[in-house]
Simulated assay, not measured.
Amino acid sequence: MVNTCNDWDTAIASWLGWLAAGGRPKTTLTLRGYHLRRVARNVGGDPWSVTVDMLTDFLGEPGWSPEYRRSIRSSLVSFYTWAHASGRCRANPAALLPTVPVPAGVPRPAPEAALRHALERADARTLLMVSLAAYGGLRRAEIAVVHSRDVVKSLDGWVLRVHGKGGKTRMLPLVDEVARRLRALPEGYAFPGRIDGHLSPAHVGKLISRVLPDPWTAHTLRHRFATAAYRADRDLIAVQQLLGHSSVATTQRYTALPDDALRRAVMGAVA
Rank of each mutant, 00 (worst) to 15 (best):
Val2Pro: 11
Trp8Leu: 10
Asp9Arg: 13
Ser14His: 14
Gly17Val: 08
Trp18Met: 12
Gly22Trp: 13
Lys26Val: 03
Thr28Arg: 13
Leu31Thr: 10
Leu31Lys: 04
His35Val: 07
Arg38Lys: 13
Pro47His: 08
Ser49Arg: 15
Ser49Lys: 12
Pro62Ile: 07
Pro62His: 11
Pro66Asn: 14
Arg70Leu: 05
Val77Thr: 08
Val77Pro: 11
Phe79Thr: 02
Thr81Gly: 15
Thr81His: 14
His84Asn: 15
Pro93Gly: 10
Leu97Val: 05
Val100Leu: 11
Pro103Cys: 11
Ala104Pro: 02
Gly105Leu: 05
Glu112Asn: 08
Glu112Ser: 13
Leu115Met: 05
His117Lys: 08
Glu120Lys: 13
Ala124Glu: 15
Leu128Phe: 03
Met129Tyr: 04
Val130Tyr: 06
Tyr135Asp: 12
Val145Asn: 06
Val146Tyr: 05
His147Trp: 04
His147Cys: 07
His147Leu: 08
Ser148Trp: 00
Asp150Phe: 04
Leu160Met: 07
Val162Lys: 04
Gly167Met: 11
Gly167Pro: 06
Thr169Phe: 09
Asp176Ile: 01
Ala179Ile: 00
Arg180Cys: 01
Arg181Gln: 15
Arg183Gln: 10
Arg183Val: 00
Arg183Lys: 14
Glu187Phe: 01
Phe191Ser: 06
Gly197Ile: 02
Gly197Phe: 06
Leu199Pro: 00
Leu207Glu: 12
His219Arg: 08
Leu221Arg: 02
Ala232Thr: 03
Arg234Lys: 14
Ile237Pro: 00
Ala238Lys: 14
Leu242Glu: 04
Ser246Arg: 10
Ala249Ser: 15
Pro258Met: 04
Asp259Thr: 05
Met267Asn: 12
Ala269Met: 14
Val270Asn: 06
